[in-house]
Structure formats: C-alpha cells, structure tokens
Amino acid sequence: MQENRPLAGLVAHLVLVLGVLIVAFPIWYTFVASTHSLQTILSPPLPLVPGDRFLDNYGEALVGGIGQIGGVGIGRLLFNTAVMATAIAVGKIVISILSAYAIVFFRFPGRMVFFWLIFITLMLPVEVRILPTYKVMVDLGLIDTYTGLTLPLMASATATFLFRQFFLTIPPELVEAARIDGAGPMKFLRDILLPLSKTNIAALFVILFIYGWTQYLWPLLITSDSRMSTIVIALRKMVSFTDADTPWHLVMVVAILAILPPVMVVVLMQRWFVKGLVETEK
C-alpha cells in the first residue's frame, strides 16, 4: 500500500527539478554561446537566449576547416572518434565474452591463474602501461592509424569479470541439455549464451562507448596528423592561453557536437542499459 504524502512528493519533485537545472544549465549556456558571434562572447554578460549565428557557426565548423586544428573539418574528427569509440566498445565486449566463456565452461590447467592475471591488471593504471604500449605501436608502424588508436584499449578486465560472474549463474542443467542435444561449444555460445547476455552486452556497450569517446591521453600520444585526431583532442587544441586568440564561438560548437553522439547512444539504448544494470533474473 502506497501512502499519499503530497508534501514529500512536492519536495522530491523540487529536488529533481533543481538537479536537472544544475546539470542542464552549463549545456544550455554552451549551446547559447555556440549561436553568438565571437565579439558577443568576449563582451560579457552573455545573453541566455540563442543568437542569430546558429547556421553560420555550425556551418563553418562542419564544412570549413578550423585553423587551430590544422584546417581539419569537424566531420572528420567526429568520424575518427566514432570509429575509435565503436571499435573499442565492440572489441572489449567480444574479447571479454570469449575470455569469460573459456574460463567458465572449459577445464584446462591454469585457467584460474589466467583469470587472476587478467583481474590483477585492474590494479595497473593506464599511465603505467602507456609507455611500453606506445613503444610497441611505434615498432609496428601503427602511429596515426585506426588500429593504433583502438587496439591497445580493447582488452578489459572489468568486462571479463562481469561476464564471468554472469556465466557462473547459468544452470549446469542447461549446459548438459545443450550437450545432449549435440550443441558444440560455438553453437552453445551463439544460440544460448549470447541471447541470455544481450542486456549485459547493451549496458556494457553504452559504458564502453562513452569510455572510448572521451579518451584523451592515448589519442594525444598516438596521433601526430591532425586528420587522425579525435574531437576531444581538437577541442583542447582550439583553446589558446589568451582569449583573443581562441575562437570561442567555434569552441562551443565543437563542445556541443562532441556531446551529442554519447547522449544519443544513452537515449537510444536507455531501456537496455537499465535492464542490464538492475535485472537479476535472466
């Protein structure tokens, strides 16, 4: 039975509205700045309503090249970042599923040793591994390539651990029934495990896509050609030490465009994302 407490409901809604305003206001302010001219932005206070430069600013950023980032258009940078984020998310999920599948359903010497070796890598921050990884990429000639951007970031101990914990909840009777029906290892993985894991995969994809989209340190090291930069790197390059040298109207445009793809992924996959995090019964 649910009690009717109008005062408590009102307070809860006010807190939610306040939270939304606190989170949304900087985004709104950035969008408003992206629709004004540079002179308006440099002459505070900035209006809180959109200006008349929306088409001009966004057209200049998307179609024309921006000098601060080597004359590269934002479309190219968004494409690079999308390729990087998607490849990292898909690669992490595929490798983690196969690793967890082998550890849980196959019996071979040292399988738990391999699992703990994977798990221990969680204790190693990226900064510890970044120099030897960079040396390997240089030796392989993968600087300024999509392979160099994505391959070193594909392994994930966290995703392997999560899939292992889920696979351990699979009833042994289901495994035995599949074996009796003549299902081989790959058929069991494809027809039984993957459908059962779809909500987990969706939730991890959202998290890992955002992880790949917001990468800064590794793309900064592995790319020297402006045409291979990501949107985050470009955003940093556009900001100068002096306000007069920074095209703030274009910086705000790039910031808004950098936000949109992760937001779209979260919105489109919200239902699967929530189910993958909170669903306990598969």
Rank of each mutant, 00 (worst) to 15 (best):
I66K: 02
V278R: 01
F106N: 11
L208I: 01
S37L: 14
P47V: 13
N4M: 04
F167L: 11
F108M: 10
D56E: 12
L250C: 07
T35Y: 06
A100F: 01
I231T: 05
F108Y: 15
P152I: 00
F119K: 03
V104G: 08
I259G: 12
H13F: 12
T169K: 13
T280N: 11
L189P: 03
E3A: 15
L149H: 02
A155W: 13
T246Q: 07
V23Q: 05
A159H: 03
F241D: 15
T121R: 05
R107S: 11
L55T: 11
M112L: 12
Y134I: 02
T121N: 10
V232E: 07
I22T: 08
G75M: 07
I97F: 05
F163W: 05
N57Y: 05
L250Y: 05
M123N: 13
T81A: 11
A202C: 07
P247M: 02
H13K: 15
A178F: 07
G19K: 08
I103W: 04
T158V: 15
I143S: 04
P125R: 06
E281M: 10
R5D: 13
P47Y: 13
L277R: 09
T230A: 06
F115H: 08
K198W: 07
L221D: 05
L122T: 08
T86E: 04
I88H: 02
L7Y: 13
A33Q: 14
M228T: 05
V49P: 13
D191P: 01
W28T: 08
Y211N: 12
V128S: 09
P44F: 13
D191E: 12
V253W: 02
V49S: 15
G9M: 11
I233S: 02
F166C: 09
L18H: 06
L140A: 09
V94R: 08
I22F: 12
P132T: 00
I74E: 10
V63Q: 00
V254H: 12
I74H: 10
G64K: 14
L260I: 15
A61P: 02
T147I: 14
L122V: 10
V23K: 03
A85R: 07
L196E: 00
L42V: 06
G184R: 12
L117R: 09
A82F: 13
R111W: 01
V49R: 14
W218D: 02
S240I: 00
I256N: 05
S226H: 12
V126M: 13
A183I: 04
L149T: 00
I231A: 01
M269Y: 15
D243Y: 00
L124V: 15
G75R: 11
I210A: 12
A178L: 09
F79E: 12
Y146A: 05
T81L: 09
W116C: 04
L62D: 04
R53F: 09
D181E: 14
L174Q: 06
F167W: 06
V63N: 00
V128I: 14
D181Q: 10
D144N: 15
I97H: 01
P26F: 14
A258R: 03
T30C: 15
T150I: 03
A102W: 02
P47H: 14
T223D: 09
V251W: 03
V90M: 10
L38W: 00
